[in-house]
Structures are given as C-alpha cells and as structure tokens.
Computed example of a mutant assay.
Amino acid sequence: MLSPQSTEVIRATLPVVGAAIGDITTLFYRKMFDAHPELERDLFNRGNQKQGEQQKALAGAIAAFATLQLEPDSAKVDLILSRIAHKHASLGITPDQYAIVHEHLFAAIVEILGDAVTPDVAAAWDEVYWLMAETLTTMERGLYQLAGVDAGDVWRTVRISERVLQSADTVSLTLTSLDGSALPTFAPGQYLSVGVTLPDGARQIRQYSLCSIPSSADWRISVKRISGTPDGEVSNFLYNNVFEGQELSVTTPFGDLTMPDDNSPLLLASAGIGCTPMIGMLNHLVDTGAERSVSVIHADRSIADHAHRAELSTLVDKIPAATLHRWYEDLGTHVAFGSVHEGRADLQDIAVEPDTQAFLCGPMPFMLAMRASLLERDVPAQNIHYEVFGPDSWANT
C-alpha cells in the first residue's frame, strides 16, 4: 500500500502522467533496447514492438495499477498482475531484471515530463513502480515454486514425436521428453513458451496453448502460420521448418485461464486458432468423465480454415451435456443447418445460465463482443475469463 504522502502526490499527478504515459513507455523501450539490445533480440516480441502494442499494454498496466492505489481494489489488481506474472514466469523473468526496467523507465519519465518531476513526484512514482514490481516478483516466486523450479529456470529441450496437419495453415506438434519420462502435468487451458533461433540470429519467444490431455505423458501444441504486417515470424518458422524427430526449446506450462473444479456450467467460446485452449479443456473433461453442462461456441472464416474441426466435434460428442455451435463467415457450397451457422458468432439463441463460467479465446474484437453479450445475459464479469497471446489490452480497461 502506498504511503499517505505518495498517495496524494499520485492523485495530483496521475492526470499528467497518464496523458503522457504512451510517450513515456515508447521512449522507455527505446532507451532500454539501446542499452540492452539483447533484450529486444532474444526476449521481447519484435512484432509487438513494431506495432506499438507492447507499449500500449505497459502504459495501460502502469496507469491502471497507479489508479488502483488511490481506490484500492485487490481483485482488480490481481486480475491485472496475475496475467503479467504468468507471462513473466513463462519467459523466465527474474527479480534482477526489474532494476533494468526501473532505470530506463524513470529516465524516460524525467525526459518526457522535465521540470514537472520534482523530488516528491519522483519519489511517489518510484514507490508505485517498486510496489508493482514487488507484487509481481512475489507472484512469480509463487509460480516458480508451484512448478518446482528455481526462479527463471523454466526452459527444457523436448523432441517432436508427431506433426499433424490440422488445417491448411495449422499444424499440431506432439512434444516428448528426451529421456522418455513423462513431462510435467498442467492445468487445462495453460500454455507454454517456445523459443527459436531465427535466420537473422535473434532468439524469439512465443506462447502456445496446450491442447493435449493434461494427464498424458506428452504435450501437444498447435501452430498457425500467419500472413500480415508483420508476419508471424515464430509461428511461420515453426510451420515451415520444424518436423518429427527435431528438438525444440520450451518452458514449463503457465497461464491463469483454468477451469474451476466444480460442476458449474461452462461456456467455451473461441475463434480461429483460439480453439486450442478449448481443445485442452475438452480433452480434460472427456478424460475425467465430466457430466457438467458445456456450451461450445466456435467461429472461423470457413470450414477449411477450422483447425481441429473433427476433433472438436468428437470431443463434444463424448460429453453427455455438451452442445456445439459453429459459425463460418463463408460456408462455400455448404448450407447452414442446425448448429452450423453462416456469419459471425451470436449468443442470441443460446441458453446461458446465470452461474455459467465462460472462457474466451480469439481475436480481441471477438472476445469483447462475446463478453458484452454475456454481460447482457446477466453472467457476472468475474465469471468471464479470457486468453490473449500478446499484449493484454483488456485487463486495463
């Protein structure tokens, strides 16, 4: 908790700092990467940096955390920082790296705000930063302990035992240990990081949901090649270059998109490759003989684009109280029938019980639309959970 003196300084300066936080975080990253080019090359997502998404997410997180120190809301703080802590753990972040961030973040604050950064202002924002950093390092320490690893020691080498085409643009990779022992179990919905060395020598890291049965000895992820600006450089590299028998550098699983272990009704809504954590959850429900009510919603561009299409249907059929609803923007020569619809996903005709626990994964516009619909159906906000692979702009809103 902030000291009373710092609280009043933050209250007075938050509008000014908040208005400039986007410029501050942009300059911060530039300063940090100038001093530590290895961080941009080997740790941070270069694509998100080019698009400015990481800068926006950091700015939002800092502003939101500072605001919550004025009117404390522990649940909101946990929501914002828990997701960051899991992401940091999946990257192997250690406490000493927070000092590097502090040095360049405060240099950026002073450069952008100039004379407005008096000693009292600097001290108050310094207190906010270290309070946020200490909260995160405590969370991350707990995650490392739960995973049974030392801080930052999350990487292991695995072998690809199987590669299966799930759609024209998506492959699933089954990962096994090098010595044949069982890989650690994970909670359905969690992800792991994959690190690859690209042709230019950079070691880039991305996260992929685990879509295998959590209790199995092996792990399975799915990778979709992405064309755009920028291209998905890690996913495209994996799709084009990684095959059976090769080794891959991955981390211990992390992630806070996990199902409650009760009989509450579930709604699993995904779009595109966002189906992967849902496949993992459904595999778990089938494996444990679950009889709870499950509504599965999936949206995709076309039937041909739908990765894990057959597996999704098979898993839903094995759960007694599960129903599947699919939407395709383009049905081609097929026609809409029953639970197969043309257009964008819509919850209007789907029964949603008030105590439903909803899990969402897909493009941000899809998830925000699903969230709005669920709120209109009286599903409590705390019952709506989501996963986003990239900077998180939801939790800060």
Rank of each mutant, 00 (worst) to 15 (best):
D300W: 01
D300F: 01
D300Y: 01
R301V: 15
A304K: 04
A304G: 03
A304R: 04
A304Q: 11
A304F: 04
A304C: 04
D305H: 08
D305V: 09
D305F: 06
H306E: 14
H306A: 13
H306W: 07
A307P: 15
A307R: 06
H308D: 15
R309W: 13
A310Q: 14
L312P: 10
S313G: 15
S313M: 14
S313I: 12
S313H: 13
T314W: 03
T314D: 15
L315A: 06
D317W: 07
D317F: 07
D317Q: 14
K318A: 12
K318Q: 14
I319W: 03
I319T: 01
I319M: 04
P320V: 12
P320A: 09
A321C: 07
A321S: 10
A322F: 01
T323Q: 05
T323K: 02
L324S: 02
H325A: 12
R326Y: 03
R326H: 02
R326I: 09
R326E: 15
R326P: 00
R326Q: 14
R326L: 15
R326F: 04
W327E: 08
W327K: 01
E329P: 02
E329Q: 08
E329M: 05
E329G: 15
D330G: 00
D330I: 02
D330C: 01
D330F: 02
D330N: 10
D330M: 02
L331S: 00
G332M: 13
G332V: 13
G332F: 11
T333P: 00
V335E: 14
A336C: 11
A336G: 08
F337W: 05
G338L: 10
S339V: 08
S339Q: 14
S339N: 15
S339A: 15
S339W: 01
S339G: 07
V340E: 15
H341E: 13
E342L: 04
E342T: 07
G343C: 08
G343V: 10
G343K: 03
R344F: 14
R344T: 10
R344S: 09
R344C: 06
A345V: 12
A345Y: 09
A345T: 11
A345W: 10
D346W: 05
L347Q: 01
L347Y: 01
L347E: 06
Q348R: 14
Q348F: 11
Q348I: 15
Q348W: 11
D349P: 00
D349K: 03
D349E: 13
D349S: 08
D349L: 09
D349W: 05
I350E: 06
I350V: 13
A351L: 04
A351G: 00
A351F: 01
A351S: 03
V352E: 06
E353A: 12
E353G: 00
E353F: 07
P354A: 09
P354V: 12
P354I: 13
D355C: 06
D355I: 09
T356E: 13
Q357C: 06
Q357I: 05
A358D: 07
A358W: 04
A358R: 01
F359H: 12
F359C: 13
F359S: 10
L360T: 10
L360N: 07
L360S: 03
L360D: 12
C361H: 10
G362W: 10
P363Y: 02
P363H: 03
F366T: 06
F366P: 08
M367W: 10
M367I: 14
L368F: 03
L368G: 06
A369P: 00
A369L: 06
A369R: 04
M370N: 07
R371D: 09
R371W: 02
R371G: 00
R371A: 04
A372I: 03
S373H: 05
S373M: 12
